[in-house]
Amino acid sequence: MTAVTDIREPGFAEELGAAAADFLRGEGFPDRLRDDAPDICGLHRQVADLGLLGVLVPEEGGGIGGGAAELVAVFRAVGRGLLPLPLAESVAAASVLADDGYADGTTMLALAGVMTGDPWAGSTLDGDRITGRAGLVNGAGVADRLLVPAWDTSGARVLALVAAGQARFTPVAATDRTYRPAEAEFTGAPATTVARGAEAERAWRQVLTVGRIAAAAELTGIANRLVELAVAYVGERKQFGRPVGSFQAVKHLAADAATTAYAMDSLCRRLAGGELTGLDAEHWADSAKAFCSRAALQVAETALQMFGGIGFTAEHDLALYFPRILTLGDRWGDPAALEAALGARALADARGRS
């Protein structure tokens, strides 16, 4: 498994992000999520045709050969449009599978272990058979394969690839309409070992790094969209014969939300200009995910104050974006855990230099 390459063509990332945004608008998102059971049948194939599943897959492997800039651009658009697919999971898994031919630009992948304290603890691999509970999996109904962290019978950590049809899924209710979680369980399911030992640990860290960058970008897209919606609303809504946005207290709220979203933008620009592998990438991915999880929630709460009573209704767009922020806050590492890990690494570095 080698590092993801970045084609770095000027303007390509922006074009890809714009194409993703146009696609989501054309498919009616996020309004389409208001249906009790939105039909997403075939949506993953449309996403594959657009090239989004293969954003980090090399061109020779059937992808578009992108890197950090393309990843950030795509997921900012996904945040604004609320795509109800496990795209981040699929892209993150493909980043470590494509070089060995296990993933291409058409394969929808799901991940186990993203929301557990110890991702390796749930399943055991015995030869080419896997057994155990893998925890919550997002988008199992549309995935082709699952990437599962597990132990093998020799006591080594492994990453196993399992066909989605070989798992038993128990759906779990969620308020986030973009999120379709299910508990995954295996009973002697056929599995392919794709990495073992130190290689598996390195590959899993890369999966988390890519996922955290995607989550930070998605949260940034959401935050910017909420600022746009809230500012437009207070410019139109009148009270005492004046737009409510003309009152100083509301202006302060708008400024706070816009400033926070701008800080998230700055972090995303740093991510887009960096790499996807190595300790520096891990540090920035962890920092951005922790900050953007808290910042997006802050923007949403401020937007709720600006919208007033209408923001509490199920018919308002905020009712779609707010649960997604909460879901992303928990996935790929919650902010408190990431901040604790960042602090521990900083302290260890300082002691090492003294």
Rank of each mutant, 00 (worst) to 15 (best):
R202K: 11
A182L: 12
A163N: 14
W332H: 14
G188E: 04
A340H: 10
D176C: 13
I64T: 06
L276G: 04
L53K: 13
F75C: 05
R157A: 12
E201Y: 07
V47T: 11
T260K: 06
S287H: 09
G135I: 11
A288D: 02
A112K: 10
V55G: 00
G113L: 08
A150I: 03
A37V: 14
T260H: 09
Q239I: 05
L297T: 08
G245D: 02
G28D: 10
Y262W: 10
A215Y: 03
G81C: 10
T209S: 11
T192D: 07
E275S: 15
F240L: 15
A232P: 01
G188K: 12
G278K: 02
D126A: 15
G141V: 12
L24M: 12
C41S: 15
L229H: 01
D349P: 00
D349N: 08
T153L: 11
F291K: 07
P58R: 07
L326Y: 01
K238Q: 13
D128C: 11
V158N: 06
A263I: 01
D118H: 05
L347C: 08
R34N: 02
W332K: 12
C292R: 02
A336H: 11
L226Y: 04
V72I: 15
L24H: 07
A94S: 15
T124R: 13
A182D: 12
P190G: 10
V162D: 05
P58I: 05
G343D: 10
G343Y: 03
T302Q: 07
A255T: 14
T277W: 02
Y233I: 00
M264P: 06
L83H: 05
H283R: 15
P84K: 13
